[in-house]
Nucleic acid binder design. Structure first.
Lengths: 346, 346
DNA sequence: GTTAGCACTCACCATCTCTGAGTGCTAACA
DNA sequence: TGTTAGCACTCAGAGATGGTGAGTGCTAAC
């Protein structure tokens, strides 16, 4: 059933008042504060309808109404006004983000602090995940006898390294030869391309350094396979500024969840990552039991086809969606810019 | 003034009861639960003395006594019994830590989860800091045109990498030459050794790749200088299991502090890092205003002279010190073992 | 269809009292 | 002289009580 224009206005007023005050909203207050040209009694009738239709609920008989999940959903989809950040907010943001980053890791981990500072909600950032990684380059660096460092650079620009040990003696020039042999043979390949047959061929060509090859290849495969997105969390304590978390049990539930980066990562991966749009999960929509009282707002960032990741915030369902969405969009744009520059795409 | 044997026993009983129950301890209870062969009245007299001496305090007239910071300090220094972990605890710990770690980063970040799981308190781990780093090896890896990866391996086994861009064209073999030239010239040097004069000499020898050299050298210097210890935090939500943090303001203070890794790092660096011993800061001893209601227990780990770092926990002043100390010792030993193996010192 | 009026509900707050754990002091005991 | 029993006193915390006010739903009039 369609909502009448009047019902929409009232619903919007209720959601916005509730977001602002965290207090159940009564008909009188709406009549007074928003001049809709309606009396409290009329609004009361409409509110009763809205409640029946599932958009509102009552904490108890003699309190005002609060939006239900459905109410928020409708608000977010159809009523929410675009919020424009103030000049101060924008310039503050620019200033914060306008520093020299030089490591991918650095940007990503600091961006979570930026987000939480701007939105006043806990922020989560997923480290970029490579779509379908291919090897760009593999290097071996001897660091002491029988111990080397393998550095793998992938398509997506992700760099990984690991220390390996092996049993055969090898000198500097030999390891360079091995290194470029491996690199040449693996360059451009995806995990699927590195078949046992191909490895076998390489193995035979390697002669005495076959053992070394095996270790390196298994590490490379691991790098390509890696799907686990690292997650950074910033400003988690911000959640405590919201009265819905002054109940210590609620707070504990939240922080326990956030303690596990794995949990958070899983939750993030449940959010759509298809589009340029911002996705919002309200309350139980996230499908995560212990987050049923929180909402999650996530933006996807990507640099060309290479990097892909998410930034977002977690807050109470009673969240300032309009403001959060605008802020996230803004930060996301800026982030993509920075990453793009870092990836050398000017 | 020396404490009589009897006062010591009573103080110990009070501290331990208070740690166990979080309730102020009354004379009657001590008389009943610990058979010291004394009546409640006698204990009362002694308690009055202990209070006068500063070891105990009263939340209010008709409550029992709780230990003051001085009381905890005396307990920790002189009364605390060694706690032996149970067989279950030990085997659980062994099992948790007995997995294949392969990146330094991985061990360090997971160890914080282990610590918090074992102790039930929030855990902090400082990523190893190099004492006085020297360059072991510098490598340049071309990843696309005019873009390379610099990998620096130091003495301490720390590996860092950064993407750099430069304006001159260079091919694979040339960059290898540049790479080994730089590496040879910097190997074994500390930050102090890399003087402008020396860099100038290298610069002249480099010819057209001088610009590249400058970028690389400045990154190397940064790697050597880096003093900032990364910090990992695990199980922060555990703090909420302690009744002293059911006050939301206390909780917020704690989490705000923990939100900033920098804060935590600074606090850790205030703890002594001289010895093999575990150091304990009780309440305001930490010198950090917002942590005045918490205690910090830290163990130093090191692998030879190379790696140096800290693991520890943060909890309420009413903390099970005995248990925490033993657990940390145990975990620390195990960690050193793992790191030692990883660093190839078998 | 809208609104004024009114009875009713109920969380919240302040106030009060009661209870019990704990203290300090005194006097008796070993 | 140190220890203990006894007792009056204190005070936080838990309930009980009642008043207040914001809010509702319903009815009747506009």
């Amino acid at each position: 059933m369609e909502l009448s224009q009047r019902k929409r206005m009232i619903l919007q007023a209720i959601v916005e008042d509730y977001i602002a005050t965290a207090e159940p909203v009564g008909s009188r207050n709406i009549a007074k504060n928003h001049d809709l040209g309606l009396s409290a009694a009329t609004i009361r009738n409409e509110m009763a309808d809205l409640e029946e239709m599932g958009y509102l609920e009552k904490p108890h008989t003699s309190a005002g109404r609060i939006p239900s999940e459905l109410g928020y959903r409708f608000y977010v989809d159809s009523l929410m006004q675009r919020y424009s950040l103030t000049v101060d907010e924008i310039s503050g943001l620019q200033r914060t983000m306008d520093r020299k980053y030089d490591q991918l890791e650095g940007v990503i981990s600091e961006i979570s602090d930026v987000i939480s500072k701007v939105t006043k909600y806990p922020a989560v950032v997923a480290f970029p995940k490579e779509k379908k990684g291919r090897v760009r380059s593999v290097r071996l660096i001897l660091i002491e006898e029988r111990m080397a460092l393998v550095v793998v650079v992938t398509d997506a620009g992700v760099v990984k390294n690991r220390r390996i040990r092996f049993s055969s003696d090898i000198d500097y020039s030999a390891i360079d030869a091995v290194s470029s042999f491996i690199s040449k043979n693996l360059a451009g390949l995806s995990a699927a391309d590195i078949t046992p047959a191909r490895v076998m061929l390489m193995y035979e060509a390697m002669g005495e350094y076959g053992e070394l090859l095996k270790i390196v290849v298994s590490f490379v495969l691991e790098c390509l396979k890696e799907d686990y997105a690292r997650v950074y969390i910033g400003g988690a304590s911000n959640i405590l500024n919201n009265p819905e978390f002054s109940d210590i049990d609620k707070a504990r539930e939240f922080f326990s969840f956030m303690d596990s980066r794995e949990n958070v990562g899983k939750m993030l991966s449940l959010m759509g990552d298809d589009s340029d749009n911002i996705s919002i999960k309200i309350g139980s929509e996230s499908g995560v039991e212990s987050m049923k009282d929180t909402s999650i707002v996530v933006a996807n960032y990507h640099v060309g086809d290479k990097l892909r990741g998410k930034i977002g915030i977690i807050g109470p369902t009673r969240m300032d969606y309009a403001r959060v969405v605008s802020s996230l969009e803004m930060i996301n744009d800026r982030l993509v810019e920075i990453l793009g520059r870092m990836m050398g795409q000017e």
